[in-house]
Computed example of a mutant assay.
Amino acid sequence: MALTKKIQSSMGLEIPEAYIKIDSLSGNKNMLQINVKTYVSQTAAQEDRVPVEDSYKSFTPSVEDEAANFIKQGYEYLKTLPEYAGAIDVLE
């Protein structure tokens, strides 16, 4: 899974279909830290190109029986943040 969205990078580059991917996560049931990488396209990510953005975000995951896995929760959390509002799921 990943997200796609039109963004403007911190360097001022407008990217019409940025590909936003959780690269890794670490933590425990109290706090998860996710490494979020943004690429100019899905192809760029698949070719292991350098991301245009690389950031870390933290959230408290749900550990309820019916809760989604931590990666899915990470993407749902990202969509609550202003910089990722309106992002569209990319199912792989």
Rank of each mutant, 00 (worst) to 15 (best):
G74L: 04
Q46V: 04
V50W: 06
E76L: 08
A87M: 03
S62D: 11
S55W: 02
K79D: 00
V50G: 00
A45V: 05
D23Y: 12
Y77M: 02
K5Y: 05
G74R: 05
E64W: 08
E92W: 07
Y75N: 06
P61N: 08
M1R: 10
E66A: 14
V36S: 09
M31I: 10
I15W: 13
A2K: 10
K79Q: 12
Y19A: 05
V52S: 08
T60I: 10
R49V: 12
G86T: 10
S58E: 11
D89Y: 13
L91I: 15
D89A: 06
E76C: 00
P61C: 01
D23C: 01
A18I: 06
S55C: 07
M1I: 06
M1S: 09
V90Q: 11
S41E: 11
L32G: 01
E47I: 00
Q46G: 10
N35T: 13
V52A: 03
Q42F: 06
L78A: 02
V40S: 14
I34H: 03
A2V: 10
F59G: 01
Y39V: 12
K79V: 02
V36P: 07
K29F: 01
S24P: 00
T4I: 03
M31S: 11
R49T: 12
E83N: 05
E83S: 07
E83W: 00
E14T: 15
E53A: 10
K5F: 03
M11E: 15
E47M: 13
A2I: 06
T38F: 05
E47G: 05
A87L: 01
D89L: 04
T38Q: 09
L81Q: 11
I88V: 15
K72T: 13
E83R: 05
G27S: 07
D65W: 04
A2G: 12
E66F: 10
A44R: 11
L25E: 07
N69P: 03
I15E: 12
S41W: 08
Y77L: 01
K5C: 04
V90S: 05
L25M: 12
E83G: 00
D23H: 12
Y77I: 02
K79G: 00
K5N: 14
K79H: 00
F59L: 01
Y75L: 03
E83Q: 12
F59I: 05
K79P: 00
M11W: 10
A68T: 11
P51M: 03
F70C: 02
E83V: 07
E17M: 02
P61E: 07
N28Y: 06
I88W: 01
E14L: 08
G27P: 08
V63H: 02
I7R: 10
S41V: 13
F59E: 04
K72S: 04
Y19T: 07
F59Y: 13
S55F: 02
K5R: 15
F70D: 13
Q8M: 14
N28R: 04
E66G: 06
Q73C: 03
S9R: 08
K79E: 02
S41G: 09
K5I: 09
R49A: 15
A87C: 06
